[in-house]
Design a protein around this nucleic acid. Sequence first.
DNA 1: TTGTAAGCGTTATCAA
DNA 2: TTGATAACGCTTACAA
Lengths: 346, 346
Amino acid sequence: MNKKQITIDDIAQIIGVSKATVSYAFNKKARISEEMRSRIMDVADELGYIPNPVARILTTKRIGAIGLLLPQNIQFSFNNPFYLKLIQGIGSICINQGMTVSIISPIYGDINNSVRNCIVDGFITLGLEPHMKTYRILKYRRIPFVSIDVKTIENVPSVTSNDKKGAHELMKYVLEMGHKSIAIISFILARQYKEEHESILRNLRMQGYFSALKEIGLSEKSDSINTYQCECTLEGGMKVAEDIFSKKNKPTAIIAMSDIIAMGVMSYCKKNKIKVPRDISICGFDNVPLSDLTHPALTTVDQRIYEKASTAATMLMNLINNNELLEYHIQYKTILEIRDSVRNIS
Amino acid sequence: MNKKQITIDDIAQIIGVSKATVSYAFNKKARISEEMRSRIMDVADELGYIPNPVARILTTKRIGAIGLLLPQNIQFSFNNPFYLKLIQGIGSICINQGMTVSIISPIYGDINNSVRNCIVDGFITLGLEPHMKTYRILKYRRIPFVSIDVKTIENVPSVTSNDKKGAHELMKYVLEMGHKSIAIISFILARQYKEEHESILRNLRMQGYFSALKEIGLSEKSDSINTYQCECTLEGGMKVAEDIFSKKNKPTAIIAMSDIIAMGVMSYCKKNKIKVPRDISICGFDNVPLSDLTHPALTTVDQRIYEKASTAATMLMNLINNNELLEYHIQYKTILEIRDSVRNIS
DNA sequence: TTGTAAGCGTTATCAA
DNA sequence: TTGATAACGCTTACAA
């Protein structure tokens, strides 16, 4: 590497034309005679010349990449197969739009620098909330972004799920299966943003769980209902499971706010010969890839990850191309995905 | 969007200083008086000024991103939890180096344009082989890259696994468990590169399987040994399973060249009430995340995905920073991961 | 401590 | 069909 870079000037000089001509040879093929074009291309090929993409972007303003803004660092986030589906959804649109995707994550523990410096035409944000500093920086960048999971009052397009209803339906189902003693596991918030804040997503799901409890006269304060928290990873789920099973009053059902946590709990059960759903019922949220391969298959709430992501990507592409958006806020329905991990004990 | 961009000139003009001063305020804090600095920052903050990263890069030459060059498009690749671990490994290094990661995948069905235009300091390539056109373009970009899974004779640093040995050991184990009638499933090659070519990786694993067969006097041509191919996805595995089980002479063991395929086969078995490993033994390759959560837990070959990725990222960072590389070719050992999906029938 | 001005490598505009 | 040349917005010697 670091042989000196070959520039458009080199090519122009060698052939004895202006660099404009070389530039046109690479771009608008029309203007140039076929003979000139092939002469230029031959020389370029021989010298291994590729137009410097940074310089090109400086004038064209078109980059060809969109940024996926993660709420946590890569190492943490990519524990969760959630992101497989999400990125697939984004990718399905990008591939036909000449776009690649960049993963924008905190560096040196700070996301703001990443957002300031990354080279993208637009962002898809995940769980980013308006009061965060990152949000303001995003605005300053004056490039479009679409929010997943957070609908704001402002004019930021968003794609969300009906999390509250999804959580409500799941809890209702668990209650109907006769469970009265329940552990709810919510996830710990992203700390990467160096700000304390409430998570809208978490709150919505909690509200859903609670409203279903209320319907049958229970509440989160009932003795038989206990809430736990853990990191949103497999290991987080395993750890919190240990905690739950060490208590005297064991629940009959565990509701995890995320599949990966539920899978962690199941993994703990497997290791400790706790039979699911015979000894304990477990369910999750998200319907991440492979969540149906657990044994037993995990009952969960499908939140249309792929569709949300591809819709967000489509909206973003429209913004980047200065098209009108037909809708600014799209909400997907959640779907209760009943599989085999909850037992009827009524 | 598309309010006119605020530039360094605007800030300079408003305060009545040169743009150099503004630039220094944002970068080398030393030179500037604290008072001036805060004045500049205040104005910048008020106007929402962020230095244009593209312009900045044009002079600094430092981007802050590395590209992960996928062999297939995103939608296809991200079926495989393999990439979760891989990207985690890369991310673990990037986070401490001020780097984000870009996923470089084919757009409009062509990877070469992506490689030509993406804004990265270096690449990590996956299964990219020297005879591919993409390889040449990569060279032309004159930025460093590190190859995962393909060791070349040339001076491209590489991180590989001992795939041949890993495959050999796995097959040996399966044979020792008494299996003589075996289906081997290999994966179909990436077509995104628009070139037909042999896959070094696939060949190595095949050679490993075959050499173990040979040791007990069998070969790929034996009647009891059948090879299949499918796409390297869960669905691919499900489909090929249907094929395998529709044959008259069913194998007692299925060896998939990739965990995700094996998981697909298991999924098919589950749906069709075929008990693993009672009715059929199954094993995979890779040891991808969640491959131990299947029922029964999948026997496979661990190929140190995370370590390979982080090692490749470390090497790449050294190249980007013009440091000497201590080693140019690193090969990781594979580890036979015996779990519960292969039954002893001897 | 601050200003001047020369790059950086393209593309785009206007002439020719 | 081609050429000059001005952007593009920043960083960084070198001067002051």
